[in-house]
């Protein structure tokens, strides 16, 4: 008797698993049949800040409802997002490192390059401000003070937009922090890096949106802000469908158009106001980069 019941159990489990598998398959079926050109799916490679701040959770459902496309947002650092664009592994990119974006536009890999929004980078650090950064006149001054005192500085170290910005600031300050004991690279997203800076009582450069969204968990405060060269500018762009056979051109175009439409720009402007009392991102569609921050 016992033997039979064991067999029955095995049968039940195998059946359940197979059933689960079938369900998974039927769900995928329409996706697989809808191949390249008329695909209703778009892969969006973007930065972690748009996900960690919660902006994507608001923008994508609207877009999907409006257009019928299904968006697959892959939140990675700007560096990786652009790399995926270069290989044609994504249809549309939303990133924030103009110096790294420019080559893609020049090479024709990215087309339909549009300014979407901006906010700013801020330098945050422990409340007691061991390096006396608050007295610094500018963000570059601030970095110099941190280096002088050898205060812990936590860097993204992941070639993200924020990381690119930070590296260029060190360059301006004529300091090479790489390998210094007080300079620590996390290699992870902004949220994670803020948590680490918080635990290590270190300074870090962050975009304002992620910082505000996470402030409830952090003891860090803003120690330097408001510099003109601390602007954090987001662009959206299509990966050129003429260069890669499998890139969804129509879908990418629809997403770019959606991001710069007045309706979406309004959503971006209102995003976070209820929770943080201020906008996390400022909509900029149609403006020129030079006009920002004035």
């Amino acid at each position: 008797m016992l033997k039979r019941s064991v067999l029955v159990w095995v049968a039940i489990i195998v059946l359940a698993m197979a059933l689960a598998g079938c369900q998974a398959k039927t769900e995928q079926a329409p996706r697989d049949t809808a191949k390249a050109p008329e695909s209703k799916e778009i892969v969006l490679a973007t930065t972690t800040s748009t996900q960690d701040s919660g902006l994507l959770d608001v923008l994508i459902p609207y877009f999907e409802k409006k257009t019928g496309y299904k968006v697959k947002p892959i939140a990675v650092g700007t560096g990786q997002a652009l790399e995926q664009g270069k290989k044609g592994d994504a249809d549309v990119l939303l990133t924030h490192a103009m110096s790294s974006e420019k080559p893609l536009v020049d090479e024709g890999v990215a087309v339909n390059y549009q300014l979407v929004m901006h906010n700013d980078f801020i330098l945050v650090g422990p409340e007691n401000d061991p390096a006396g950064v608050k007295q610094a006149g500018s963000s570059i001054e601030a970095l110099k003070k941190i280096a002088e005192k050898g205060a812990v500085f936590v860097s993204r170290g992941d070639k993200s937009g924020t990381d690119t910005k930070e590296k260029s600031m060190w360059k301006t300050a004529q300091i090479d922090p790489k390998g210094k004991q007080w300079y620590q690279e996390t290699g992870s997203g902004m949220g994670q890096t803020l948590t680490i800076a918080n635990q290590k009582l270190g300074y870090t450069l962050t975009d304002r949106a992620t910082f505000l969204a996470q402030q409830k968990n952090l003891k860090l405060v803003i120690v330097s802000e408001g510099d003109k060269d601390l602007l954090n500018i987001y662009h959206v762009m299509q990966v050129n469908p003429d260069k890669f056979a499998r890139v969804n051109g129509a879908g990418g175009k629809a997403f770019v158009e959606y991001m710069v439409s007045p309706e979406t720009q309004k959503i971006i402007e209102d995003f976070g106001k209820d929770k943080y009392g201020q906008s996390l991102f400022y909509p900029d569609a149609g403006k020129k980069v030079e006009e920002l921050g004035k």
Binding site: G21, A24, K25, E27, Q28, R31, D32, K35, V43, K72, I74, Q84, K87, G88, D89, F244, R246, V247
Partner: peptide
């Protein structure tokens, strides 16, 4: 499985099947 990869034509990257 990436589109640029040898099995890219399967369109399987970023699907549950890819995780399986």
């Amino acid at each position: 499985l990436w589109r640029s990869g040898p099995l890219g034509f399967l369109n399987m990257i970023y699907t549950p099947a890819a995780i399986v």
